[in-house]
Simulated scan of single mutants.
Amino acid sequence: MIRQQVLDPAAPLYRRHTWPFELKPLTLPDMPAFFPQYTAEQAIETYAVLGGMPYYLISVDAQIGLW
């Protein structure tokens, strides 16, 4: 609906949005910024379970095991 009402050139709200960029999930190389004490294996496991959503990554307690 957003694309149709705001991003389409024929829409009345065209070019009135303030943030035209889609935020992409973080990638595996970004994991050490959230979990610097994790080994590479732990970082991969965490990324496999949580993906690259920053909100999910900050909600994990790094002191407690993922599983």
Rank of each mutant, 00 (worst) to 15 (best):
P20M: 00
L26D: 02
W19T: 15
A33G: 10
L13F: 12
L50E: 00
Y14Q: 15
E41C: 03
E22F: 14
I44C: 08
L13V: 00
A11N: 09
D30V: 03
A11G: 07
K24P: 08
L26H: 03
E41A: 11
K24N: 10
P12M: 13
Y47P: 06
F34T: 00
Q37L: 09
T18V: 14
L28R: 05
P36S: 03
D8A: 13
L13H: 07
Q37R: 10
T27R: 13
F21M: 14
R16L: 15
G52K: 06
W19F: 15
T46R: 05
K24H: 12
R16F: 15
P32C: 09
D8V: 02
W19G: 06
R15E: 15
H17F: 10
D8C: 12
G51L: 10
W19E: 13
P12N: 14
L28D: 11
Y38M: 05
Y38W: 05
V49E: 09
L13M: 13
A43N: 07
A40R: 12
L26P: 05
R15L: 15
E45W: 05
T39W: 03
G51V: 08
F21R: 11
T46W: 01
E22Q: 14
F34Q: 02
P36K: 03
Q42V: 04
F35R: 10
R15Y: 05
T27N: 13
L23P: 01
P25T: 05
F21Q: 14
P29K: 08
A10L: 12
R16S: 07
F35S: 07
P12Y: 06
L23H: 04
A48W: 01
L26G: 01
L50H: 03
F34M: 02
L13G: 06
P32A: 05
Q42L: 06
T27P: 00
A11V: 08
G52E: 01
Q42W: 03
A33M: 12
A40W: 11
T46K: 01
P32V: 00
Y47W: 06
F34Y: 10
E22K: 08
K24G: 11
L13E: 12
D30T: 01
H17E: 12
R15W: 05
G52V: 04
D30Y: 06
Y38V: 02
